[in-house]
Design a protein around this nucleic acid. Sequence first.
DNA 1: ACTAATATGTTGCACATCCTAACAAATTCG
DNA 2: CGAATTTGTTAGGATGTGCAACATATTAGT
Lengths: 406, 406
Amino acid sequence: MRKINQKNFRIARRGISREINRRIALDLVRTHQPISRADLARMMNMHRASITLLVNELLAEGVIVEGGTGESHRGRKPTFLYINAREQCVVGVDIRYTRTYITVTDLLGKQLMDIQSFPTERDPERLVAELGARIKSILSDHREIDSCAGVGVVVPGMVDRVTGTLLNAPTLGWRDVNLRDPLYAATGFLVHVENSGRACALAQVWAARGEATTFGDVVFVSVSDGVGVGVVVNGELLHGRHNIAGEFGHVPLNIDGPRCSCGSRGCWEAYISNIATLSRYYGRNLVEAPLASTEAATFDINDLIARARVGDQKALDALQATGQYLGLGLASIINSIDPARVYISGEITSAWELIESQVREALASRVLVAAAKGTELQLVPAGEYPRLQGAVALVTAPAFAAPKVA
Amino acid sequence: MRKINQKNFRIARRGISREINRRIALDLVRTHQPISRADLARMMNMHRASITLLVNELLAEGVIVEGGTGESHRGRKPTFLYINAREQCVVGVDIRYTRTYITVTDLLGKQLMDIQSFPTERDPERLVAELGARIKSILSDHREIDSCAGVGVVVPGMVDRVTGTLLNAPTLGWRDVNLRDPLYAATGFLVHVENSGRACALAQVWAARGEATTFGDVVFVSVSDGVGVGVVVNGELLHGRHNIAGEFGHVPLNIDGPRCSCGSRGCWEAYISNIATLSRYYGRNLVEAPLASTEAATFDINDLIARARVGDQKALDALQATGQYLGLGLASIINSIDPARVYISGEITSAWELIESQVREALASRVLVAAAKGTELQLVPAGEYPRLQGAVALVTAPAFAAPKVA
DNA sequence: ACTAATATGTTGCACATCCTAACAAATTCG
DNA sequence: CGAATTTGTTAGGATGTGCAACATATTAGT
């Protein structure tokens, strides 16, 4: 039961039925392709006649294409339909502290070439300039690509997605940097900017895997230098009034706990970020007293995990403590959002077998009802490039989204 | 941008346009009545012709009625339209630890008679029997009431709203009590059951005040023996996979903090509930070591507030500490949900002027961005009976909600 | 090889709704 | 008393779904 937003509603015009059914059909084709008109009609509980008209319109527009014919035991063979994903590409950009990554995919998110990366320029203007130049150069190197549907950019910070501005990225040290306009000026493509945690959540919801039909509220937790979280409720990303919705990284485990990079004390992030785990290993808070840069460059969270694996008890203890705090924070997410599934990414997921029991136990200890203890935790390995997937989803998803109505 | 739920979508049939526009029109009449067809047409950006047809249909169904004529400086005077709220009543029930309250309103939530209350029977079956009998008796005493649109019941606990079952209410000590079926059997009316915190949030969102058009995500926080929270996102109540969404009362301020009634440690509730405030005054945790019932009956939170007002420094300290912790928890709500507004109800709101600065200061200390420090906090006085309003909204709101589409 | 059965995809007409423009009704102002 | 103005209605066109009949393509059985 949804309240109608009286300041921003949309009347049902003549074409609204078509628009609704068109989106449903498109999303079904996307996730079930190859699929025939008859199958679509069955899934949508409509007559084949209506589907024919709808599909022929989509074919005429070039949004979908007909492929070969399928098999059937009796009767006429179905002709398959596919999303026309080849004619346009999508550029995904992931700006991180050390490096910036670029990928190019088709409209379904299928990677079209190797992922490029380069060191992140500290000056935002120079970075944007370099980014624009690289995108143009990549696309002109690949003449087979006709046109580009848009550029999705994810950043580790707060974003005003309406203006495409990065409001504040503590790790990068950037404030109020408009990314959209200069990138649009440089490339001529539509630019979408989003926080990386949120974009990751978006990508998981829109993934066209077999399980794509699994629905429900989901949360994405990314654990690295900071903790990024994206929340999807009713199939929609949560942004909030001030663009800080989903900042569970700064919900406290203990208001008197260790100093966090945000300036506060005892945030979840201060317990589970890679820096927090390293701090535990070193026995001092690296947020307050950072390592010398030479030392930091030679020993990171992956090294710590490697040591834990070869019997360094101190390293293992540090990791397992992180696992425990991870579970406690997840319990807060479950008690407040109660999602059907939580995705977890970050370096420590590679050490999951070392920390899983700690995570589960801590989670179970604070979750309100027994049933919620079993909330599905799904790891997202770094090799899937969840942030780049998110960047791409920013561009591809809108075409398949439910139309805004009422 | 909303993902279509492929397991539960709704195709646009012929009548969908009408249904959408009908709901919009009804909700506009509800919040703007009296209103003319011409005004409706302007608000909805539709032609008067279409509105006439739509309105005449609603008139024929008896959902709305025509009233007198309005004023205009020039031209034909408009004829006013109203929601036909008089022909059916709604029963709202609030089951609390000590007493159970019953109200009867019209379809717009206008109270039709005095609120009744009676001590809450400890045995759920007996309570439901008494409740059913009382509702029948009230309605038969008021012969002027034709029919009843339904009964809304709010309870301090977890609810499965699909089956109308109270899953677990710690304060009442009830588990797996089906309220809907026996109440339906006793009264013959439709019965809706919901958690009281959530229902309160619902009521605020659907309130037909002048500010009804203010939209955005809102959170309702009810502070009494426990802490109940309701979250509305995109105009829709958050329930979650296991019916525990919004349980911010059990998100910790300190995982090593005082024992909470839920069995865990350091929950927000363990810092700000009335029992927590009293515990602070008594200098011991009343959750672990309750007061003798005679003592508890003679000194409650209102007495503590009264003492604080007349200069009892210990009482004032206890209250202001609660204010501080209230603010810290609100910061977590803002950092995770980032609502446009937070409603606060409960006894301590009557001492707001004593604690406001503590609340605001603590909130500001942990909120991630400066702008969010100003998140609107709106007090809901007990005299507005927010829980009964919520119970009533369970019945009245669905008729005005956006139709499910796609 | 022919027919029956069956599944896919198409055509045409009925029905519902919005869209537009013209019209009727009611009121004010000069 | 007529022009201007606003409200509310009527009628026909445009665009969509709903349904039934039909054309098309394929398999199984005789």
